[in-house]
């Protein structure tokens, strides 16, 4: 598994009359971990949807190793790109193992059964998110954090070279947040991940893209992107940024009670 190169070229997305994302350029080189940050409604999820082929761009292109993602057969793309999406699962009785085994589907022909190799891949995927002990539990009885780890395992079972995740640390306690991001860090696959927590994003990502109102307002290595001025502009909060002595990553400390601009401007516009 070597990483795939992703490039988003001038993508614009709309829903009805509403612009969700406007003219976004983004790249993620092989093996890079690229973070997408920004306030709620800034277009993070929409942009990811365009990448994993659910929301068709009105203009622009999504290229995966140079090929137009929207021109590839869904199944073929799924052998390269896996996603962890924010779509609730239905309440049918599947065991965790069966949920993860779904990830093998793009590698299967119509009548193929599960082979010993598939079972091995499923188990090592579960193992790498420290969820092998959940293998035979019913999926719909898991806690939010357990579910999230299982869904990441399902994506890993696809053996992707490009992994797209929409806020995978939601609902996780801090230990599992670190676990999940550590796992993403350890993969050889290229990773594009939307994150809420700026400190985690700063620590785990090679580069960040900051979205506001559907546009990229800043991008680059975390230390360059996360500045007091940017946080004031994008999030409307005053913050202090220092390099953490032990991690070496930028550390954001928010200073409450000093809004730098009215929050309504942050745009409660989309998703």
């Amino acid at each position: 598994m070597t990483g795939t190169e992703l490039s988003v070229e001038g993508v614009t997305l709309t829903a009805g009359a509403q612009r969700l994302v406007e003219d976004v350029f983004l790249t993620a080189g092989p093996g890079e971990v690229v973070g997408l940050v920004g306030p709620n409604g800034s277009g993070k999820s929409s942009l990811l949807r365009a990448v994993y082929r659910v929301l068709r761009p009105d203009s622009g292109a999504v290229r995966v190793d140079g090929a137009d993602a929207w021109g590839l057969p869904v199944r073929k793309l799924a052998r390269t790109l896996a996603a962890v999406v924010q779509d609730s699962a239905a309440d049918f009785d599947l065991a965790v193992r069966e949920v993860v085994a779904m990830g093998r589907s793009p590698h299967k022909r119509l009548l193929d059964g599960d082979t010993a190799e598939d079972r091995h891949i499923v188990e090592s995927a579960l193992d790498s998110v420290h969820a092998l002990d959940l293998a035979d539990r019913p999926f719909d009885r898991l806690s939010g954090g357990e579910r999230q780890r299982v869904l990441i395992a399902r994506a890993l079972a696809q053996q992707p070279t490009l992994l797209v995740l929409d806020e995978p640390t939601n609902h996780l306690d801090i230990r599992h947040q670190l676990d999940v991001l550590g796992i993403l860090r350890s993969l050889s696959a290229t990773v594009l991940v939307a994150l809420h927590d700026l400190n985690l994003a700063a620590y785990y990502c090679d580069r960040l893209y900051v979205l506001r109102d559907g546009r990229v307002v800043s991008s680059g290595p975390p230390a360059e992107v996360l500045t007091r001025g940017l946080l004031a502009e994008v999030y409307g909060v005053d913050a202090e940024i220092a390099v953490h002595p032990r991690t070496g990553a930028p550390q954001v400390t928010f200073l409450p009670g000093t809004p730098t601009r009215p929050l309504t401007g942050a745009g409660p516009s989309a998703t």
Binding site: A78, V85, A89, Q158
Partner: peptide
């Protein structure tokens, strides 16, 4: 197998290769 994928939700099923 495709019916199983739908249990994961439409978006997830798409990302796992189902049209």
């Amino acid at each position: 197998r495709s019916l199983n994928l739908l249990l994961a939700g439409e978006e997830a099923a798409t990302t796992m290769g189902l049209n």
